[in-house]
Design a protein around this nucleic acid. Structure first.
Lengths: 157, 157
DNA sequence: CTTGAACCTATAGTTGCTACAGGGTTTATG
DNA sequence: CATAAACCCTGTAGCAACTATAGGTTCAAG
């Protein structure tokens, strides 16, 4: 390994991983990235390892892994000798969650399509959308609110 | 009439709509449900109208409508004479978001399936999951996040 | 009248960032 | 060398949409 440490600032690091400096500082606070070396003036300086780690983190987050899951994945990838049984477990579990969310979203999409298709542009009193939302009978899924709705992290309207 | 109105407590109301009392109080704070009549001791009492309204809200939330969107839908359903053009607009917009979210989630599922399928249970150093998360080149789909988030990872140079 | 479940308010926590405010540092240029 | 622009710092507050806790009060049954 070359001792050649490019020593980039936090802005450059963030840019390379596709996030913002605030996000990097946030990851540092919660312990996903190590505390950086500082200049005399107190500014953070990073090397290539930090870039790779941050890219890993951003990818995992883009794949929908929670920060906690990323933390586990990271700690495992730091110990290359161990079996990747756990890695597989985490990813499989995550896959299951994604698949169940997909199913619900599909049902939701179908219902929305039906709603929108049936809105004839008349008066609200005969609007199917309002009707569907009001009427318990027309509910897509039975109310099993053991765990709350999974639709919560959506882009806001 | 006031004698006839079943006057239930907040717990019963919440149970009927499939949520928790805290959620109802939260909705009251943010103005989705009206302030309730109180007993002499200060406890909230509700009638059937509140039950219907809360069920409407919970359905809309289950459908993934944001609280802001629900607020609009509610204000429209309060005026049955108006055209449901706006209702349709909100629902259509929401449908588009759901569809775009579905697409991304499907791409994610495919990627996760491939990852999981390729984890042979060996050592972490040769684990495909870790590898995929580390290396952008191995990403098949360019998981392009629509307008939701701006500049994600550009080409690594 | 006593118990205990249900209720009250207020506040803080959750997740994963993002956006300031009000400074200090580094670097490029004149 | 001086200055200006670009960058960086900490700390705090905010976002959605609730959820949880603490510490106290009220209600309804027995």
């Amino acid at each position: 390994m070359s001792e050649h440490n490019a020593a980039i600032g936090i802005g450059e690091l963030a840019r390379r991983a596709g996030c913002k400096p605030e996000t990097v500082r946030y990851y540092e606070r919660v312990g996903l990235v190590d505390e950086a070396v500082r200049t005399e003036g107190g500014q953070r300086r990073y090397g290539e390892a930090a870039v790779r780690r941050l890219i890993f983190i951003r990818h995992a987050r883009d794949f929908g892994f929670s920060v906690e899951a990323v933390r586990e994945l990271l700690s495992m990838s730091d110990r290359p000798d161990m079996s990747c049984q756990e890695v597989d477990t985490i990813a499989t579990h995550h896959l299951e969650e994604v698949e169940s969310r997909l199913q619900r979203l599909e049902a939701l999409r179908d219902e929305l399509r039906r709603m929108v298709g049936q809105c004839a542009g008349g008066k609200v009193e005969s609007c199917r959308i309002i009707e569907v939302l009001s009427d318990h009978q027309l509910c897509i899924s039975e109310h099993d609110h053991g765990g709350a709705s999974d639709l919560k992290h959506g882009p806001h309207s």
